[in-house]
Design a protein around this nucleic acid. Structure first.
Lengths: 195, 195
DNA sequence: GACTGATTAGACCTGTCTGTCTAGTATCTC
DNA sequence: GAGATACTAGACAGACAGGTCTAATCAGTC
């Protein structure tokens, strides 16, 4: 029965990744042991080690899949709009979407809080932060901001801050507040351009 | 010799707390074992358990001491000024001071990332966040903001965001950027009042 | 100098962690 | 039906965690 159900749910790799995604994200990487993972995945321990080789490698795969799903969610929100200013502010609508689904904070910041300097978690976090910053800078440029790097930096503060607030205060409304604040800063930047 | 040196450095409790403060903050609570703590403190294991009773209690004391030192540092910056708008923005100067000294992110967010829901770390984090929010709201009210709660909320986003940026991007300059952005939002709020 | 209380080093206990290994079973292909 | 492949359960090893305990040592007090 367990096997049949497993067959329905997908390959051992997929089930392990799904279990890791949920448990690592919700409870922390150090806190969650291999046994918890394989129990939740409904998979034998040997399957985990045949598929991933080590817990470290499973963590790597978990962070990679988080990166893909988060960036995809943000991009989906951006692509709903056509004009550059709308697209820039849509980043915060992507965050709102993120916060609405069992949000427990930035996965990379969480992982980084448990990792040693130079660890794979720090590298994943750095890649994610670069992605966000480049996205914001590009969209700010396209929107016509006179100093796109500065605006991107300000919006990145709001981006990070809203994630922290959503997590620590259990307050998903941090996203619309950040969006509204970003809109104020954007308007101001565009007004300065024409003066 | 070790004993003499210990005598110079303070009581066992102080040394344990100092070691916990450094190791827990820099490397994480789960990652750092009791043995690392007592080695760094130059103290016997029995002394730790006589003084604190358990690792959990040491963690509690560590978070309490962090709360005291962080809030104190912010307040010192605020009290350097007399006028309410300056005092409000001085919060970000307190952050700059914080970021300048081996900053590794918000200690409460870090601890919370490793903790179970309802844990002592979450309670400490909630207390800290309430303290920040109340401080910002009070200062915004005194500065004459027409909607002090809204302004405080916006500034709290910048507060959190600058901490995240300082930590993840190794960029202490996030504090002055946040301060400048906060100044823009404050000016705008005060301008709306008189219109 | 004897007593008290705090502190020391470190052996030790118990539980849990990651990771390995064995032996058996289900499924699919030829 | 035979063989290959992927998976299963679970025992096991070695390292390390938090925590306890013993015996010795030191400082201060009478």
């Amino acid at each position: 029965m367990a096997v049949k159900e497993a067959g329905v749910r997908g390959s051992a790799r997929e089930r392990l990744l799904a279990a890791a995604d949920e448990l690592f994200y919700n409870e922390g990487i150090h806190t969650v042991g291999i046994d918890r993972i394989i129990e939740q995945a409904g998979v034998a321990k040997a399957s985990l080690y045949n598929t991933f080789g080590s817990k470290d490698e499973l963590v790597r795969a978990y962070l990679e899949s988080r990166y893909a799903s988060v960036t995809q969610r943000i991009m989906r929100a951006v692509e709903r709009y056509d004009t550059p200013p709308e697209r820039l502010l849509a980043v915060f609508e992507g965050l709102a979407d993120l916060f609405a689904h069992d949000y427990r904070g930035c996965a990379f910041a969480r992982a980084s809080a448990e990792s040693q300097p130079g660890d794979q978690a720090e590298q994943a976090a750095a890649a994610y932060r670069t992605w966000v910053r480049v996205l914001l800078t590009d969209l700010a440029t396209q929107a016509g901001a006179p100093e796109p790097e500065l605006l991107a930096r300000q919006l990145h503060l709001l981006y990070d801050g809203s994630g922290q607030a959503a997590r620590m205060d259990h307050d998903p409304a941090a996203a619309p507040v950040a969006r509204a604040t970003a809109a104020v800063l954007l308007d101001l930047a565009l007004a300065q351009r024409s003066s």
